[in-house]
C-alpha cells in the first residue's frame, strides 16, 4: 500500500495540473468567443462577395478570368491550416490526416503550411514544406490573409501548380467541427458555396461590365476564402482545446476524489494503528505496574 506522504505528493501535483487545465479552459473559451465574433462580422461581407461572384458566373457565359481557366495537369498545392500548439484533442491530427491522405493520390504536390503543428507533422513524414506561415493562426487578420493570398498567387501565376486546395477545420458549433477540403483555384461555379438568400430574383446589371466587376471580386473572394478558413480553424482549435481541457479538469477532479479518499483511509489507518500502539503500550505498562505492585 502506498505511503501517506507519497499520496500527499500526488494530490499536490494533480492539484497543480488541475489548476493549469482549468485556466487553459477559460482562456480557450475567451479566445473562441473572440474568433466567433470576428467570424460574424466577416461572414456577412464575404458571403455577399461569394454570392455576387456566383451570380455573375451563372448569368454571364462569356466571362473569362485567368483564375478560372482549367490547366490540363494536376499538380496540386495544398494549404494546410492547423494550430500552433498541441493540447487540443484530435484537432490537429484530424485535419493533418485528411491532408495527408489526399496528398497520396496526387503524384506532384506542393505543401503550404499555416501553423507550427502542420509544419512539424509534414517534417516527421519526410514531406518537404514549400512555404510556411507560422503566426497567422493565433489571431487571424485580414492582413495575414492578404499576404498569404499574394504569395500563393505568385506561385500560381508562375505556372508551378494547376490546382490549389485549402484544408482546414470547419466549425459548426462549439462541439461539432470537421476537417474539410475546399478547392481555391481554379475558381469554378460549383465550388462556390453561397447560401445567402437574395431577396431580389430579377436580372441585375453590372457596371461597367460583368467582367470588370469580376476583376474586383476575384481577389476579394480569394482573400475571403483564406480569411474564413483561418477564422474557422482558429475557432475550432480553441473549441477543441476548451473541450479537451474541460475533460482534463474533470479527470483531475475524479482522480483527486479517489486519492483523497485513499489518503483519508490511510491517515485513519495510521491513527488507528497509533492509538492501538498507544493503548496497548499503556495497557502493557499498566499491567506491568499492577504486576509490580502485586510483587511488592
Amino acid at each position: 500500500m502506498a505511503d501517506v506522504t507519497e499520496i500527499k505528493h500526488r494530490i499536490r501535483s494533480i492539484q497543480d495540473t488541475h489548476q493549469i487545465t482549468k485556466a487553459m479552459e477559460l482562456v480557450s473559451t475567451a479566445k473562441m468567443r473572440k474568433s466567433i465574433q470576428k467570424h460574424k462580422y466577416s461572414s456577412a461581407y464575404f458571403d455577399s462577395v461569394r454570392y455576387t461572384l456566383k451570380d455573375i458566373l451563372r448569368h454571364s457565359t462569356d466571362v473569362r478570368h485567368k483564375y478560372m481557366e482549367h490547366r490540363k495537369d494536376n499538380r496540386t498545392a495544398y494549404i494546410v491550416i492547423a494550430g500552433d500548439k498541441g493540447l487540443a484533442g484530435a484537432y490537429n491530427s484530424n485535419v493533418l490526416n485528411l491532408a495527408w491522405e489526399h496528398m497520396q493520390t496526387r503524384p506532384v504536390h506542393y505543401v503550404v503550411t499555416i501553423g507550427q503543428m502542420a509544419r512539424a507533422f509534414f517534417e516527421s513524414k519526410h514531406q518537404s514544406v514549400d512555404l510556411e506561415f507560422t503566426h497567422a493562426v493565433a489571431s487571424p487578420t485580414l492582413h495575414d490573409a492578404r499576404g498569404i493570398m499574394r504569395d500563393i498567387l505568385d506561385l500560381y501565376d508562375s505556372n508551378l501548380m494547376d490546382e490549389v486546395y485549402v484544408i482546414f477545420t470547419r466549425m459548426h458549433s462549439t462541439s461539432v467541427h470537421e476537417p474539410v477540403m475546399v478547392k481555391l483555384l481554379p475558381i469554378e461555379e460549383k465550388d462556390i458555396e453561397a447560401d445567402v438568400k437574395n431577396t431580389y430574383g430579377g436580372q441585375i446589371d453590372y457596371d461597367p461590365s460583368p467582367k470588370e466587376v469580376l476583376n474586383v471580386l476575384v481577389p476579394q473572394y480569394l482573400v475571403g476564402m483564406i480569411y474564413t478558413a483561418l477564422i474557422h480553424s482558429s475557432a475550432s482549435e480553441h473549441a477543441s482545446r476548451m473541450l479537451a481541457m474541460s475533460n482534463a479538469t474533470k479527470n483531475a477532479e475524479k482522480i483527486l476524489d479517489t486519492l483523497s479518499l485513499e489518503f483519508n483511509r490511510l491517515r485513519q489507518n495510521a491513527i488507528t494503528t497509533d492509538l492501538l500502539d498507544l493503548s496497548s503500550g499503556r495497557f502493557a505498562a499498566a499491567n506491568k505496574q499492577t504486576e509490580g505492585n502485586a510483587r511488592t
Binding site: 455576387t52 431580389y200 446589371d205 453590372y206 457596371d207 461597367p208 470588370e212 474586383v216
Partner: peptide, 20 residues
Amino acid sequence: TTLDGTCMIMAEHQPMVFAT
C-alpha cells in the same frame, strides 16, 4: 467612385452592381 468615374445613386435606382 466607380471604374468609369463618379456616380450618384438615388432612390428608385435600377438594380445594379457597381465596381468601385
